[in-house]
């Protein structure tokens, strides 16, 4: 089984790093408490590293735990984690020299919301991973489904499952996928302004302003987030105001334009199931079209919105 093999290799790599004192800490995943759920693990000894694992539920973006760390750290990183790491290295949030990347090629993580939908909200007790299919088991049911149908949307769209940078690779590189067509974004763009407004209002009526999206995002690390600022107060703090909820997210995604690796961590973190990638990907698409840039896909490119060239397109200055 691919996953078990990867898990064993990750464990070995981590133990070796800790035993040889090459790093002080390995950030990876342990078996979580829910079916097919990985949970972030911080291993400082080879014994602790024994808990490391790898499965289709290792969905968190571990780059979030790597900013401004003391000492030498190793991270178990899938494609999207590595892109965020690269973006953070460029922003001087991570010192590349002190980070050891254990890269894991990733073909996607399973979305428990989709699993729940598939079984009609019934209590899932176990998810058996059989490679291309999974068996979802509950008290009086058992259902087989294709992994491809259950992946997170971000994973279905992802073109960088293979880590773009690593110090050590676990397993084998996966075949490249075709270009992202941003179909759902184009579809949304084609709607009238009123339709778009209505959709966003409906989505953001669910927002409870818990800021899980912001806190899960590796790129949201401002010391003082504009939503918290009190002098001046830029934005109302009541979740009852849908416009403020939209404004919060709109400003957040603008702040991460050109830096967002489309990892989907924000959307996955949202307890209210809000379609946040609609906004983040709009910016990803715009940055790609306008600057031919993608965040964190190599160490060389300068961050799209942190550089200036004479031929920068500036459509926002052009009156349509």
């Amino acid at each position: 089984m691919r996953m078990q093999k990867l898990a064993a290799q990750i464990k070995d790599a981590a133990k070796k790093l800790l035993e040889e004192k090459k790093v002080d800490l390995v950030v990876g995943f342990a078996e979580g408490s829910l079916p097919l759920r990985g949970t972030p693990l911080f291993a400082r000894t080879p014994e602790e590293a024994d808990k490391l694992t790898w499965n289709r539920g290792c969905e968190n973006n571990l780059a979030n735990y790597l900013r401004k760390r003391e000492g030498k750290v190793a991270v178990v990183a899938k494609g999207c984690d590595v892109r965020s790491i690269v973006a953070l290295v460029k922003e001087n949030q991570i010192n590349r020299d002190n980070l050891y990347i254990i890269g894991v090629p990733c073909s996607g993580m399973i979305d428990r919301k989709k699993v729940n939908q598939l079984v009609g909200g019934k209590d899932v007790l176990e998810i058996e991973d059989n490679g291309d299919t999974v068996v979802i088991k509950g008290k009086d049911f058992s259902e087989t489904a294709r992994v491809a149908d259950l992946l997170h949307n971000s994973c279905q769209d992802c073109r960088y499952g293979n880590p773009v940078v690593y110090d050590e690779l676990i397993g084998e590189l996966l075949p490249e996928k075709g270009e992202d067509d941003f179909a759902e974004i184009k579809e949304f763009e084609a709607k009238t302004a009123a339709e778009r407004r209505a959709y966003l209002a409906e989505e953001f009526s669910k927002c409870i302003r818990c800021y899980a999206c912001r806190n899960a995002c590796p790129m949201c690390y401002c010391e003082e987030c504009f939503v918290d600022c009190s002098t001046p107060q830029w934005i109302g703090k009541s979740a009852a105001d849908i416009q403020d909820n939209i404004l919060f997210q709109a400003v957040r995604v603008f702040h991460s334009a050109g830096r967002c690796a489309d990892c989907g961590a924000c959307e996955r973190a949202c307890p209210m199931g809000i379609n946040l990638r609609l906004l983040t990907r709009k910016l990803v698409k715009d940055v790609k079209e306008l600057f031919n840039a993608e965040a964190g896909v190599n160490m060389e490119d300068k961050a799209a919105l942190a550089t200036f060239t004479a031929d920068d397109p500036e459509p926002f200055l052009v009156k349509e």
Partner: peptide, 12 residues
């Protein structure tokens, strides 16, 4: 250590 310090658990 892994907690993100968000408000999800308290609000829910």
């Amino acid at each position: 250590e892994k907690c993100l310090g968000c408000g999800a658990c308290t609000y829910l």
